[in-house]
Write a protein that binds this DNA or RNA. Structure first.
Lengths: 163, 163
DNA sequence: TATTGTTATACTCTATAACTATA
DNA sequence: TATAGTTATAGAGTATAACAATA
């Protein structure tokens, strides 16, 4: 009976946590979006920024790989990459071994844009976090670690197995 | 000197935490978006869901109030509400005291759609969270509480002062 | 035939600028 | 004149469906 009660508590805790995520994640996301837009560091949208970050970590990734990581379907990703290529931030190249595949890689301008945006975004976010105590910061960072593992895409799991 | 070192550590902790947010929040957000789309519970987008949730908690809120909470400008909000009104989820009404203002309120269908989407989203999210231990869940929930306070909009602060 | 990617099309999100109605 | 909201317009994000090229 006690075990059952525990299970029930766990389930209700899980539901409560899910509710919190459902409310807070979009709220924080909206702030991220607005700050990135206002800062105009390199004028990157959030998905563009994420794509560049992935390509920084995985040079010569295929379009499919990026799409899976970002969580977009191929047509959406193809279009997003169109923009990055037009702006000279990414280089598109056909793979020699399998000519159906497209290999993507950051240009030097792409690297700069990524770094600029990352630094500026981090700085603005850090201002918001300034009022947190050291232990609060630790809680948030730990939570982000947990969520990163939970919501990593299948392909990411292969490379960096989640704990 | 020791104090300075502490300050430096705190700053670097803050930066690291900001980096984690910058990476993980969009990742989780993307999952939320996709799950809400796939579930088709009531076919609500994330911003639509957020607007309904706010109106549930604040009946007869003005368009401006909703816009500020969601983090949209007035034209964007007006258009979003157009869609909700057309679908019969929200009622728009002119305020008698100040005829410039528009008061928004959920219809019964709006309440249902909100509840359906909330339950379905929470359930799907809960599946992902199932592998977390009770203490991990607590960490995530605590982090969400901290972030909710930090990123609440100005108007929300008035009603529910952040700790 | 199956897979990778692109093109075509459509809808939502979001912004800015110009406008209307009310105060 | 200032404020609340709408309309007009535009661009990015995202999806589905249809297509092309390669395996």
């Amino acid at each position: 009976m006690k075990l059952l009660a525990k299970e029930t508590n766990k389930a209700s805790e899980t539901q409560q946590c899910a509710s919190a995520l459902l409310e807070v994640v979009p709220q924080v996301m909206q702030h991220l979006r607005m700050e990135m837009r206002k800062s105009c560091a390199a004028d990157l949208s959030v998905p563009q920024f994420r794509a560049l970050a992935f390509l920084h970590d995985h040079p010569d990734a295929t379009l499919s790989a990026v799409a899976e990581h970002i969580g977009l379907l191929l047509p959406s990703m193809s279009k997003l990459v169109d923009g990055l290529v037009e702006r000279g931030l990414v280089r598109r190249r056909v793979c020699r071994e399998d000519r159906r595949c497209v290999l993507l890689r950051l240009t030097r301008r792409g690297e700069s844009a990524l770094e600029l945006t990352h630094q500026s975004g981090r700085a603005r976010l850090a201002e918001h976090l300034a009022s947190l105590s050291a232990s609060d910061l630790a809680v948030v960072e730990q939570a982000m670690g947990l969520l990163r593992s939970l919501f990593a895409s299948a392909r990411d799991e292969e490379e960096r197995p989640a704990g």
